[in-house]
Design a protein around this nucleic acid. Structure first.
Lengths: 243, 243
DNA sequence: TCAGAAAGGTGTACGCCGTACACCTTGTGT
DNA sequence: ACACAAGGTGTACGGCGTACACCTTTCTGA
Protein backbone atom coordinates (compact mmCIF):
# COMPACT_ATOMS: atom_id res chain seq x y z
CA UNK A 1 0.00 0.00 0.00
CA UNK A 2 2.79 2.39 0.83
CA UNK A 3 4.42 1.65 -2.42
CA UNK A 4 4.05 5.23 -3.64
CA UNK A 5 4.33 7.47 -0.67
CA UNK A 6 4.56 11.22 -0.94
CA UNK A 7 8.04 10.78 -2.37
CA UNK A 8 8.28 12.91 -5.49
CA UNK A 9 8.39 10.49 -8.38
CA UNK A 10 9.92 11.62 -11.60
CA UNK A 11 7.66 10.55 -14.49
CA UNK A 12 9.24 7.91 -16.64
CA UNK A 13 11.42 8.99 -19.47
CA UNK A 14 10.58 8.41 -23.09
CA UNK A 15 12.10 9.42 -26.38
CA UNK A 16 9.85 12.41 -26.70
CA UNK A 17 10.62 13.86 -23.30
CA UNK A 18 14.31 13.39 -24.02
CA UNK A 19 14.09 15.22 -27.33
CA UNK A 20 12.00 18.03 -25.93
CA UNK A 21 14.40 18.49 -23.05
CA UNK A 22 17.32 18.50 -25.47
CA UNK A 23 15.70 21.19 -27.59
CA UNK A 24 14.93 23.35 -24.56
CA UNK A 25 18.40 22.93 -23.20
CA UNK A 26 19.98 23.81 -26.52
CA UNK A 27 17.71 26.85 -26.71
CA UNK A 28 18.99 27.94 -23.34
CA UNK A 29 22.68 27.17 -23.41
CA UNK A 30 23.49 26.54 -27.06
CA UNK A 31 24.58 23.45 -28.88
CA UNK A 32 28.16 23.45 -27.63
CA UNK A 33 27.43 22.83 -23.95
CA UNK A 34 24.71 20.30 -24.82
CA UNK A 35 26.30 17.04 -23.76
CA UNK A 36 24.66 13.77 -22.92
CA UNK A 37 25.79 14.25 -19.35
CA UNK A 38 24.39 17.73 -19.10
CA UNK A 39 21.10 16.67 -20.62
CA UNK A 40 20.84 13.73 -18.25
CA UNK A 41 21.45 16.03 -15.34
CA UNK A 42 18.67 18.29 -16.56
CA UNK A 43 16.35 15.28 -16.58
CA UNK A 44 17.48 14.14 -13.15
CA UNK A 45 18.84 10.96 -14.51
CA UNK A 46 22.16 9.28 -14.92
CA UNK A 47 23.79 9.81 -18.35
CA UNK A 48 23.49 6.24 -19.50
CA UNK A 49 19.74 6.30 -18.97
CA UNK A 50 19.40 8.39 -22.11
CA UNK A 51 20.76 5.56 -24.19
CA UNK A 52 17.62 3.58 -23.50
CA UNK A 53 15.77 6.15 -25.61
CA UNK A 54 18.22 7.34 -28.23
CA UNK A 55 20.91 5.19 -29.77
CA UNK A 56 23.65 7.80 -29.46
CA UNK A 57 24.26 11.50 -29.64
CA UNK A 58 23.92 11.64 -33.40
CA UNK A 59 20.47 10.18 -33.20
CA UNK A 60 19.66 12.67 -30.50
CA UNK A 61 20.56 15.50 -32.85
CA UNK A 62 18.49 13.94 -35.61
CA UNK A 63 15.61 13.76 -33.19
CA UNK A 64 16.01 17.40 -32.27
CA UNK A 65 15.84 18.28 -35.94
CA UNK A 66 12.65 16.25 -36.21
CA UNK A 67 11.16 18.27 -33.40
CA UNK A 68 11.84 21.63 -34.95
CA UNK A 69 10.75 20.53 -38.42
CA UNK A 70 7.45 19.80 -36.75
CA UNK A 71 7.26 23.46 -35.80
CA UNK A 72 7.26 24.68 -39.38
CA UNK A 73 3.82 25.69 -40.59
CA UNK A 74 2.26 23.43 -43.19
CA UNK A 75 1.86 24.96 -46.63
CA UNK A 76 -1.08 27.33 -46.92
CA UNK A 77 -3.49 26.24 -49.60
CA UNK A 78 -5.42 28.14 -52.23
CA UNK A 79 -2.83 30.74 -53.07
CA UNK A 80 -0.31 30.89 -55.90
CA UNK A 81 2.83 28.81 -55.62
CA UNK A 82 4.99 31.82 -55.01
CA UNK A 83 3.14 32.92 -51.93
CA UNK A 84 2.93 29.37 -50.67
CA UNK A 85 6.65 28.91 -50.98
CA UNK A 86 7.44 32.32 -49.65
CA UNK A 87 5.32 31.91 -46.55
CA UNK A 88 6.69 28.47 -45.87
CA UNK A 89 10.28 29.58 -46.12
CA UNK A 90 9.59 32.51 -43.84
CA UNK A 91 7.96 30.16 -41.37
CA UNK A 92 11.01 27.90 -41.46
CA UNK A 93 13.15 30.95 -40.89
CA UNK A 94 11.13 31.89 -37.85
CA UNK A 95 11.68 28.43 -36.45
CA UNK A 96 15.40 28.66 -37.04
CA UNK A 97 15.50 31.98 -35.29
CA UNK A 98 13.65 30.57 -32.32
CA UNK A 99 16.22 27.77 -32.12
CA UNK A 100 19.48 29.46 -32.87
CA UNK A 101 21.45 26.24 -32.50
CA UNK A 102 19.54 24.60 -35.32
CA UNK A 103 21.23 26.12 -38.34
CA UNK A 104 24.68 24.64 -37.77
CA UNK A 105 23.13 21.34 -36.79
CA UNK A 106 21.12 21.16 -39.98
CA UNK A 107 24.16 22.11 -41.98
CA UNK A 108 26.26 19.28 -40.62
CA UNK A 109 23.51 16.71 -40.65
CA UNK A 110 23.20 14.80 -43.89
CA UNK A 111 20.80 12.13 -42.72
CA UNK A 112 17.59 11.77 -44.61
CA UNK A 113 15.33 11.03 -41.69
CA UNK A 114 11.60 10.60 -42.26
CA UNK A 115 10.91 14.07 -40.94
CA UNK A 116 13.38 15.64 -43.35
CA UNK A 117 12.11 13.61 -46.27
CA UNK A 118 8.56 14.51 -45.39
CA UNK A 119 9.37 18.19 -45.33
CA UNK A 120 11.18 17.96 -48.64
CA UNK A 121 8.35 16.04 -50.16
CA UNK A 122 5.82 18.59 -49.13
CA UNK A 123 8.11 21.37 -50.31
CA UNK A 124 8.53 19.82 -53.72
CA UNK A 125 4.78 19.38 -53.82
CA UNK A 126 4.32 23.13 -53.65
CA UNK A 127 6.13 23.57 -56.96
CA UNK A 128 4.54 20.61 -58.70
CA UNK A 129 1.10 21.78 -57.63
CA UNK A 130 2.00 25.18 -58.99
CA UNK A 131 2.44 23.60 -62.40
CA UNK A 132 6.22 23.34 -62.43
CA UNK A 133 7.84 20.65 -64.49
CA UNK A 134 9.68 17.99 -62.57
CA UNK A 135 12.87 19.16 -64.21
CA UNK A 136 12.56 22.76 -63.19
CA UNK A 137 11.42 21.74 -59.73
CA UNK A 138 14.56 19.75 -59.30
CA UNK A 139 16.89 22.61 -60.10
CA UNK A 140 14.85 25.02 -58.11
CA UNK A 141 15.11 22.82 -55.06
CA UNK A 142 18.85 22.89 -55.37
CA UNK A 143 18.92 26.62 -55.85
CA UNK A 144 16.67 27.42 -52.94
CA UNK A 145 17.76 24.58 -50.67
CA UNK A 146 20.47 26.10 -48.58
CA UNK A 147 18.45 29.23 -48.07
CA UNK A 148 16.20 27.30 -45.76
CA UNK A 149 18.21 24.32 -44.57
CA UNK A 150 21.59 23.93 -46.10
CA UNK A 151 21.12 20.51 -47.57
CA UNK A 152 21.50 21.74 -51.12
CA UNK A 153 24.52 19.88 -52.32
CA UNK A 154 23.63 16.34 -51.45
CA UNK A 155 19.88 16.61 -51.73
CA UNK A 156 19.43 13.41 -53.67
CA UNK A 157 22.70 11.75 -52.86
CA UNK A 158 21.19 8.46 -51.80
CA UNK A 159 22.72 6.99 -48.68
CA UNK A 160 26.13 7.26 -50.27
CA UNK A 161 27.92 10.08 -48.44
CA UNK A 162 30.81 8.10 -47.07
CA UNK A 163 30.94 4.48 -48.04
CA UNK A 164 32.06 4.26 -51.61
CA UNK A 165 30.10 5.19 -54.68
CA UNK A 166 26.50 4.43 -53.98
CA UNK A 167 24.00 1.99 -52.58
CA UNK A 168 25.92 -0.91 -54.05
CA UNK A 169 26.61 -2.28 -50.60
CA UNK A 170 22.94 -2.90 -49.91
CA UNK A 171 21.19 -6.04 -50.99
CA UNK A 172 18.91 -5.58 -54.00
CA UNK A 173 15.80 -6.71 -52.16
CA UNK A 174 16.50 -4.09 -49.52
CA UNK A 175 16.82 -1.48 -52.23
CA UNK A 176 13.51 -2.61 -53.63
CA UNK A 177 11.87 -2.31 -50.25
CA UNK A 178 13.28 1.17 -49.81
CA UNK A 179 11.92 2.09 -53.20
CA UNK A 180 8.48 0.81 -52.28
CA UNK A 181 8.43 2.80 -49.12
CA UNK A 182 9.69 5.90 -50.87
CA UNK A 183 6.98 5.79 -53.47
CA UNK A 184 4.35 5.39 -50.80
CA UNK A 185 5.56 8.03 -48.38
CA UNK A 186 7.49 10.52 -50.48
CA UNK A 187 6.07 10.39 -53.98
CA UNK A 188 7.29 13.82 -54.95
CA UNK A 189 10.81 13.24 -53.79
CA UNK A 190 10.86 10.05 -55.72
CA UNK A 191 9.54 11.67 -58.86
CA UNK A 192 12.13 14.40 -58.86
CA UNK A 193 14.93 12.08 -57.88
CA UNK A 194 14.25 9.53 -60.57
CA UNK A 195 13.82 12.19 -63.23
CA UNK A 196 17.17 13.63 -62.26
CA UNK A 197 18.86 10.31 -62.84
CA UNK A 198 17.67 9.61 -66.37
CA UNK A 199 21.04 10.54 -67.73
CA UNK A 200 23.23 8.02 -66.05
CA UNK A 201 20.66 5.30 -65.50
CA UNK A 202 21.13 4.88 -61.77
CA UNK A 203 17.84 4.80 -59.95
CA UNK A 204 18.49 6.88 -56.92
CA UNK A 205 21.42 9.10 -56.27
CA UNK A 206 24.55 9.97 -58.14
CA UNK A 207 22.40 11.14 -60.98
CA UNK A 208 22.74 14.81 -60.56
CA UNK A 209 25.33 17.13 -61.90
CA UNK A 210 26.56 19.19 -59.01
CA UNK A 211 28.42 21.63 -61.13
CA UNK A 212 25.36 22.27 -63.23
CA UNK A 213 23.20 22.79 -60.17
CA UNK A 214 25.67 25.19 -58.68
CA UNK A 215 25.93 27.27 -61.82
CA UNK A 216 22.18 27.19 -62.23
CA UNK A 217 21.71 28.78 -58.83
CA UNK A 218 24.61 31.15 -59.28
CA UNK A 219 23.33 32.42 -62.59
CA UNK A 220 19.84 32.73 -61.24
CA UNK A 221 21.23 35.11 -58.66
CA UNK A 222 23.56 36.95 -61.01
CA UNK A 223 20.81 37.47 -63.57
CA UNK A 224 18.50 38.79 -60.90
CA UNK A 225 21.21 41.05 -59.61
CA UNK A 226 21.91 42.33 -63.10
CA UNK A 227 18.28 43.24 -63.57
CA UNK A 228 18.22 45.16 -60.31
CA UNK A 229 21.40 46.95 -61.27
CA UNK A 230 20.03 47.92 -64.65
CA UNK A 231 16.95 49.46 -63.14
CA UNK A 232 18.99 51.33 -60.53
CA UNK A 233 17.55 49.43 -57.61
CA UNK A 234 17.62 51.13 -54.26
CA UNK A 235 16.59 49.42 -51.08
CA UNK A 236 15.06 52.58 -49.74
CA UNK A 237 12.65 52.70 -52.65
CA UNK A 238 11.97 48.99 -52.24
CA UNK A 239 11.12 49.49 -48.60
CA UNK A 240 8.69 52.24 -49.52
CA UNK A 241 6.99 50.14 -52.15
CA UNK A 242 6.72 47.29 -49.78
CA UNK A 243 5.14 49.55 -47.22
CA UNK B 1 82.08 19.62 -34.08
CA UNK B 2 79.92 16.52 -33.79
CA UNK B 3 77.00 18.63 -32.86
CA UNK B 4 74.95 17.60 -35.88
CA UNK B 5 75.81 14.04 -36.70
CA UNK B 6 73.92 12.03 -39.26
CA UNK B 7 70.96 12.00 -36.91
CA UNK B 8 67.87 12.98 -38.85
CA UNK B 9 66.86 16.41 -37.67
CA UNK B 10 63.27 17.48 -38.03
CA UNK B 11 63.21 21.05 -39.32
CA UNK B 12 61.85 23.46 -36.80
CA UNK B 13 58.15 24.00 -36.66
CA UNK B 14 56.49 27.25 -37.49
CA UNK B 15 52.95 28.46 -37.84
CA UNK B 16 52.96 27.91 -41.54
CA UNK B 17 54.15 24.34 -41.41
CA UNK B 18 51.56 23.64 -38.75
CA UNK B 19 48.75 25.07 -40.84
CA UNK B 20 49.85 23.33 -44.01
CA UNK B 21 50.08 20.03 -42.18
CA UNK B 22 46.63 20.60 -40.71
CA UNK B 23 45.16 21.27 -44.14
CA UNK B 24 46.77 18.19 -45.65
CA UNK B 25 45.69 16.04 -42.76
CA UNK B 26 42.12 17.30 -42.99
CA UNK B 27 42.20 16.66 -46.72
CA UNK B 28 43.18 13.10 -46.03
CA UNK B 29 41.15 12.08 -43.04
CA UNK B 30 38.47 14.73 -42.73
CA UNK B 31 37.81 17.34 -40.11
CA UNK B 32 36.40 15.00 -37.50
CA UNK B 33 39.56 12.99 -36.84
CA UNK B 34 41.69 16.12 -36.98
CA UNK B 35 42.72 16.56 -33.36
CA UNK B 36 45.63 18.46 -31.93
CA UNK B 37 47.09 15.15 -30.83
CA UNK B 38 46.75 13.57 -34.22
CA UNK B 39 48.21 16.59 -35.95
CA UNK B 40 51.15 16.65 -33.55
CA UNK B 41 51.79 13.00 -34.26
CA UNK B 42 51.81 13.75 -37.97
CA UNK B 43 54.45 16.39 -37.33
CA UNK B 44 56.50 14.11 -35.09
CA UNK B 45 56.03 16.34 -32.16
CA UNK B 46 54.33 16.26 -28.81
CA UNK B 47 50.81 17.76 -28.78
CA UNK B 48 51.68 20.73 -26.62
CA UNK B 49 54.35 21.81 -29.07
CA UNK B 50 51.63 23.02 -31.40
CA UNK B 51 50.53 25.58 -28.86
CA UNK B 52 53.75 27.46 -29.41
CA UNK B 53 52.47 28.28 -32.90
CA UNK B 54 48.70 28.49 -32.61
CA UNK B 55 46.87 29.72 -29.54
CA UNK B 56 44.30 26.93 -29.53
CA UNK B 57 42.32 24.71 -31.83
CA UNK B 58 39.96 27.48 -32.87
CA UNK B 59 42.84 29.57 -34.08
CA UNK B 60 44.16 26.55 -35.89
CA UNK B 61 40.89 26.30 -37.79
CA UNK B 62 41.00 30.00 -38.56
CA UNK B 63 44.49 29.52 -39.88
CA UNK B 64 43.39 26.66 -42.07
CA UNK B 65 40.69 28.90 -43.51
CA UNK B 66 43.34 31.50 -44.21
CA UNK B 67 45.33 28.95 -46.13
CA UNK B 68 42.52 27.93 -48.41
CA UNK B 69 41.36 31.49 -48.98
CA UNK B 70 44.83 32.02 -50.35
CA UNK B 71 44.11 29.38 -52.95
CA UNK B 72 41.22 31.30 -54.48
CA UNK B 73 42.17 33.02 -57.72
CA UNK B 74 42.35 36.80 -57.61
CA UNK B 75 39.68 38.60 -59.62
CA UNK B 76 40.34 38.69 -63.33
CA UNK B 77 40.51 42.21 -64.63
CA UNK B 78 39.20 43.82 -67.78
CA UNK B 79 35.95 41.96 -68.11
CA UNK B 80 32.42 42.90 -67.04
CA UNK B 81 31.50 42.57 -63.38
CA UNK B 82 29.32 39.57 -64.00
CA UNK B 83 32.09 37.48 -65.48
CA UNK B 84 34.51 38.63 -62.82
CA UNK B 85 32.17 37.62 -60.06
CA UNK B 86 31.17 34.42 -61.76
CA UNK B 87 34.71 33.25 -62.32
CA UNK B 88 35.73 34.14 -58.80
CA UNK B 89 32.86 32.23 -57.26
CA UNK B 90 33.61 29.24 -59.40
CA UNK B 91 37.23 29.43 -58.33
CA UNK B 92 36.18 29.50 -54.72
CA UNK B 93 33.97 26.52 -55.37
CA UNK B 94 36.87 24.61 -56.84
CA UNK B 95 38.88 25.29 -53.72
CA UNK B 96 36.06 24.09 -51.52
CA UNK B 97 35.80 20.93 -53.53
CA UNK B 98 39.50 20.31 -53.20
CA UNK B 99 39.17 20.67 -49.42
CA UNK B 100 35.95 18.95 -48.62
CA UNK B 101 36.25 19.66 -44.92
CA UNK B 102 36.23 23.40 -45.52
CA UNK B 103 32.54 24.05 -46.05
CA UNK B 104 31.35 23.04 -42.60
CA UNK B 105 34.31 24.83 -41.04
CA UNK B 106 33.52 28.05 -42.85
CA UNK B 107 29.89 27.73 -41.90
CA UNK B 108 30.61 27.48 -38.20
CA UNK B 109 33.34 30.07 -38.17
CA UNK B 110 32.19 33.62 -37.57
CA UNK B 111 35.57 35.22 -37.04
CA UNK B 112 36.50 38.07 -39.26
CA UNK B 113 40.17 37.30 -39.67
CA UNK B 114 42.31 39.47 -41.95
CA UNK B 115 42.19 36.85 -44.67
CA UNK B 116 38.41 36.73 -44.60
CA UNK B 117 38.11 40.49 -44.51
CA UNK B 118 40.56 40.78 -47.36
CA UNK B 119 38.59 38.37 -49.46
CA UNK B 120 35.35 40.16 -48.71
CA UNK B 121 36.89 43.48 -49.47
CA UNK B 122 38.11 42.34 -52.82
CA UNK B 123 34.77 40.71 -53.50
CA UNK B 124 32.87 43.88 -52.73
CA UNK B 125 35.32 45.72 -54.94
CA UNK B 126 34.19 43.69 -57.93
CA UNK B 127 30.70 45.12 -57.65
CA UNK B 128 31.72 48.66 -56.87
CA UNK B 129 34.11 48.64 -59.82
CA UNK B 130 31.24 47.37 -61.90
CA UNK B 131 29.35 50.53 -61.12
CA UNK B 132 27.07 49.16 -58.41
CA UNK B 133 25.79 51.50 -55.74
CA UNK B 134 27.03 50.82 -52.23
CA UNK B 135 23.45 50.06 -51.25
CA UNK B 136 22.86 47.44 -53.88
CA UNK B 137 26.28 45.98 -53.28
CA UNK B 138 25.43 45.49 -49.66
CA UNK B 139 22.26 43.53 -50.32
CA UNK B 140 23.89 41.58 -53.07
CA UNK B 141 26.66 40.50 -50.75
CA UNK B 142 24.08 39.15 -48.35
CA UNK B 143 22.19 37.40 -51.10
CA UNK B 144 25.21 35.77 -52.65
CA UNK B 145 27.20 35.27 -49.45
CA UNK B 146 26.29 31.79 -48.38
CA UNK B 147 26.63 30.53 -51.89
CA UNK B 148 30.37 30.88 -51.58
CA UNK B 149 31.08 30.82 -47.87
CA UNK B 150 28.09 30.68 -45.64
CA UNK B 151 28.72 33.86 -43.74
CA UNK B 152 25.61 35.55 -45.04
CA UNK B 153 23.68 36.21 -41.92
CA UNK B 154 26.23 37.96 -39.80
CA UNK B 155 28.32 39.56 -42.49
CA UNK B 156 28.57 42.92 -40.80
CA UNK B 157 27.76 41.92 -37.28
CA UNK B 158 30.79 43.54 -35.72
CA UNK B 159 32.40 41.44 -33.02
CA UNK B 160 29.03 41.06 -31.35
CA UNK B 161 27.94 37.44 -31.76
CA UNK B 162 28.30 36.37 -28.18
CA UNK B 163 29.21 39.04 -25.72
CA UNK B 164 26.23 41.28 -25.37
CA UNK B 165 25.06 43.80 -27.88
CA UNK B 166 28.07 45.18 -29.62
CA UNK B 167 31.52 46.61 -29.29
CA UNK B 168 30.51 48.50 -26.18
CA UNK B 169 32.95 46.50 -24.12
CA UNK B 170 35.94 47.81 -26.01
CA UNK B 171 37.63 51.03 -25.10
CA UNK B 172 36.85 53.91 -27.46
CA UNK B 173 40.44 54.46 -28.43
CA UNK B 174 40.68 50.82 -29.38
CA UNK B 175 37.58 51.22 -31.51
CA UNK B 176 39.15 54.21 -33.16
CA UNK B 177 42.29 52.26 -33.90
CA UNK B 178 40.28 49.45 -35.38
CA UNK B 179 38.45 51.96 -37.53
CA UNK B 180 41.72 53.40 -38.76
CA UNK B 181 43.02 50.03 -39.70
CA UNK B 182 39.79 49.07 -41.39
CA UNK B 183 39.79 52.12 -43.58
CA UNK B 184 43.36 51.47 -44.59
CA UNK B 185 43.13 47.77 -45.25
CA UNK B 186 39.51 47.11 -46.13
CA UNK B 187 38.11 50.30 -47.60
CA UNK B 188 35.30 48.59 -49.44
CA UNK B 189 34.11 46.65 -46.47
CA UNK B 190 34.11 49.82 -44.49
CA UNK B 191 32.19 51.71 -47.09
CA UNK B 192 29.45 49.14 -47.33
CA UNK B 193 29.32 48.56 -43.61
CA UNK B 194 28.98 52.21 -42.70
CA UNK B 195 26.41 52.84 -45.40
CA UNK B 196 24.36 49.99 -44.04
CA UNK B 197 24.30 51.57 -40.62
CA UNK B 198 23.02 55.00 -41.53
CA UNK B 199 19.61 54.09 -40.24
CA UNK B 200 20.39 53.40 -36.65
CA UNK B 201 23.45 55.54 -36.26
CA UNK B 202 25.81 52.89 -35.02
CA UNK B 203 29.08 52.93 -36.83
CA UNK B 204 29.86 49.33 -37.37
CA UNK B 205 27.55 46.42 -36.94
CA UNK B 206 24.02 46.03 -35.77
CA UNK B 207 22.97 48.33 -38.55
CA UNK B 208 21.49 45.83 -40.89
CA UNK B 209 18.03 44.46 -41.03
CA UNK B 210 18.36 40.70 -41.17
CA UNK B 211 14.78 40.11 -42.08
CA UNK B 212 15.04 42.53 -44.98
CA UNK B 213 18.21 40.92 -46.24
CA UNK B 214 16.70 37.49 -46.06
CA UNK B 215 13.58 38.49 -47.96
CA UNK B 216 15.68 40.36 -50.47
CA UNK B 217 17.58 37.22 -51.32
CA UNK B 218 14.52 35.01 -51.19
CA UNK B 219 12.58 37.24 -53.55
CA UNK B 220 15.53 37.51 -55.86
CA UNK B 221 15.43 33.75 -56.18
CA UNK B 222 11.66 33.48 -56.40
CA UNK B 223 11.45 36.16 -59.06
CA UNK B 224 14.12 34.43 -61.08
CA UNK B 225 12.36 31.14 -60.68
CA UNK B 226 9.09 32.65 -61.78
CA UNK B 227 10.67 33.97 -64.92
CA UNK B 228 12.08 30.57 -65.77
CA UNK B 229 8.74 28.98 -65.13
CA UNK B 230 6.94 31.44 -67.37
CA UNK B 231 9.25 30.74 -70.26
CA UNK B 232 8.95 26.97 -69.79
CA UNK B 233 12.56 26.53 -68.82
CA UNK B 234 14.05 23.14 -69.40
CA UNK B 235 17.51 22.21 -68.27
CA UNK B 236 18.05 20.08 -71.36
CA UNK B 237 17.56 23.12 -73.55
CA UNK B 238 19.77 25.15 -71.28
CA UNK B 239 22.51 22.59 -71.56
CA UNK B 240 22.29 22.69 -75.32
CA UNK B 241 22.44 26.47 -75.42
CA UNK B 242 25.36 26.46 -73.10
CA UNK B 243 27.11 24.01 -75.36
C1' DT C 1 83.39 34.29 -27.58
C1' DC C 2 80.14 33.61 -24.47
C1' DA C 3 76.35 34.70 -21.28
C1' DG C 4 71.66 35.29 -21.12
C1' DA C 5 67.33 35.64 -23.20
C1' DA C 6 63.93 34.24 -26.22
C1' DA C 7 61.86 30.69 -28.83
C1' DG C 8 60.83 25.94 -29.45
C1' DG C 9 59.77 21.37 -27.50
C1' DT C 10 58.49 18.01 -23.56
C1' DG C 11 55.88 15.46 -19.72
C1' DT C 12 52.44 15.31 -16.64
C1' DA C 13 47.94 16.07 -15.23
C1' DC C 14 43.03 17.70 -15.16
C1' DG C 15 38.41 17.82 -16.35
C1' DC C 16 35.56 17.22 -19.91
C1' DC C 17 33.36 14.12 -23.54
C1' DG C 18 30.66 9.74 -25.65
C1' DT C 19 29.49 5.30 -24.51
C1' DA C 20 30.34 -0.12 -23.59
C1' DC C 21 28.99 -3.39 -20.18
C1' DA C 22 27.17 -5.56 -16.26
C1' DC C 23 23.99 -4.86 -13.03
C1' DC C 24 19.69 -3.63 -10.34
C1' DT C 25 14.66 -1.86 -10.18
C1' DT C 26 10.16 -1.10 -11.69
C1' DG C 27 6.07 -1.89 -14.39
C1' DT C 28 3.17 -5.02 -17.16
C1' DG C 29 0.71 -8.99 -19.03
C1' DT C 30 -0.66 -13.54 -17.86
C1' DA D 1 1.92 -14.26 -8.24
C1' DC D 2 5.41 -14.34 -11.15
C1' DA D 3 8.33 -13.85 -15.13
C1' DC D 4 10.00 -10.94 -18.35
C1' DA D 5 10.77 -6.73 -20.60
C1' DA D 6 11.67 -1.99 -20.21
C1' DG D 7 13.79 1.58 -17.69
C1' DG D 8 17.54 3.25 -14.73
C1' DT D 9 22.34 2.86 -12.37
C1' DG D 10 27.57 2.63 -11.51
C1' DT D 11 31.83 1.89 -13.09
C1' DA D 12 35.25 2.24 -16.38
C1' DC D 13 37.81 3.27 -20.78
C1' DG D 14 39.86 5.84 -24.25
C1' DG D 15 39.95 10.26 -26.48
C1' DC D 16 39.73 15.15 -26.41
C1' DG D 17 41.66 20.27 -25.54
C1' DT D 18 44.93 22.48 -22.92
C1' DA D 19 47.17 24.59 -18.25
C1' DC D 20 51.58 24.53 -16.16
C1' DA D 21 56.23 23.66 -15.05
C1' DC D 22 60.16 22.29 -17.05
C1' DC D 23 64.13 21.38 -20.30
C1' DT D 24 66.75 22.38 -24.84
C1' DT D 25 68.01 24.80 -28.84
C1' DT D 26 68.86 28.97 -31.23
C1' DC D 27 69.55 33.74 -31.57
C1' DT D 28 71.53 38.20 -30.01
C1' DG D 29 74.62 41.68 -28.69
C1' DA D 30 78.52 43.05 -25.76
Amino acid sequence: MAQQISVERRPRLNRDRVLQAAVSLADEVGIGPLSMRRLAQELDVVPMALYKHVANKDELLDGMVEVIIGEIDPPVADVDWKSTVRLRVLSARRVLQRHKWARPVLETRTNRTPAVLGYMDSFIGMFLTGGFSVDLTHHVMHAIGSRMWGFTQELFDSAASESGEGPADVAPEVQAAMFQEMSASYPNVLQVATAASHDDGSVVGGGCDDQFEFEFALDLLLDGIERLHQRDYSSAAARLERG
